[in-house]
Amino acid sequence: MNIPPRMHGGTDALGAAPFDFSTNSNGCGPCPMALEAVQAADASRYPDPHYTQLRQRLGRFHGVESERVVLATSASEFIFRFTAWMKQGGTTAVWIPATAYGDYAHAANAWGMHRCTHPHEAELLWACEPSSPLGQAHAPWPAWLIEGHQASQHLVLDCAYAPLRLSGSPSLTETQREQVWQLYSPNKALALTGVRAAYAIAPLHALQAVCQLDALAPSWPVGAHGVAMLQAWTQDATQDWLRQSLVTLRAWKVAQLQLLQDLGWQCLPSNTNFFCAVPPVGTELNALLDQLRAQGIKLRDAASLGLPGHVRISVQGAEAQRVLANALTALQPTMEVTQ
């Protein structure tokens, strides 16, 4: 399987960028309630190894039985563990969207799976809605899911950006979502990406699979700080803060899109707090990204996400937008490819 090298937004060898547009973290955060909970976490004790109360909270939050909740160190850890579980069961073929988070392919490659062209050819399917890096509705869904047929396929729906949806609506009905694995990593919505904790909701009638996935995990996959964040995630005050942050992000997004379009960038449509964009014709992208990074501004090259020539940009506040606009304006004459 031909996959790009691992690349991520956020902190790099130069440290944390003062103006970081490279991750999809909520620009309004961190969420005060979640941050307070994390800071107050008792790191002197082991968490409950069965996460009894946390599973119950998450189950009530999603309206499902707590037995359907699978805890994970992070979304990436779950991606690798789920792939290992599928390989253990004999899976050899995986389907991954053309533009997608790289760890789906990295996990498949690590376990010797081959990547299929069409969803119906694979036993394991990955989807993300809203999608990354485009922030759009997912397509295509496998026919069995839309038509309501049973299939010997496992589809994992990555819901990392569902809490950060600014427009549009989910493509799948609640009944359809009950047929797939739903993976949640709230640290992006809470702007606490340094806290690694995630969970999945198993499909109906998949309790044996839950037990098998739990058996593949190490003891205490989620530490005290991750437990505190996930507990805070289920609280009404946290969800109220999140809803209000979406109002702010919508306004910031309008301004940021206009800023880039005025500078000659082509911005792709999205439903989220991030979008992909193409710089003005003639721009040498790598040089531009390096120059911006030297000034404390970081954008995400989308090549590793399946979109070479594009950047993925998260929505940030007025000060960050002003700094970005000034830098792009100053650099524009020097960034053109020599003809």
Rank of each mutant, 00 (worst) to 15 (best):
I3R: 04
P4L: 11
P5W: 01
P5C: 02
G9P: 10
T11F: 03
P18E: 10
F19E: 09
D20Y: 07
S22I: 03
N24G: 14
G29H: 06
G29D: 01
P30D: 13
C31T: 00
M33T: 05
S44L: 05
P49K: 06
Y51T: 15
Q53I: 10
R68P: 00
T73Y: 07
S74L: 00
F80Q: 05
R81G: 04
T92K: 11
Y101P: 01
D103W: 02
Y104G: 14
A110R: 15
G112D: 07
H120K: 11
E121N: 03
L124A: 06
W126H: 13
A127K: 09
A137I: 10
P142H: 02
L145H: 01
I146G: 09
E147W: 09
G148M: 03
H149K: 11
Q153I: 02
V156I: 15
A160L: 14
L164Q: 08
L164S: 08
L166E: 09
T175A: 14
Q179S: 07
V180K: 01
L190E: 04
A191L: 01
R196L: 08
A197K: 06
A200W: 01
I201C: 04
I201P: 05
Q208Y: 00
A215E: 04
A215Y: 01
A217G: 09
V227P: 10
T234K: 09
T234R: 05
L242D: 00
Q244P: 03
L246K: 15
T248A: 11
R250A: 15
A255L: 10
L257Q: 07
W265C: 08
L268K: 04
C276R: 06
A277L: 11
A277D: 05
P279G: 09
V281E: 14
E284F: 04
Q291A: 15
A294G: 15
D301Y: 03
L307C: 06
V315D: 11
A318F: 03
R322E: 06
P333H: 02
T334C: 11
T338C: 15
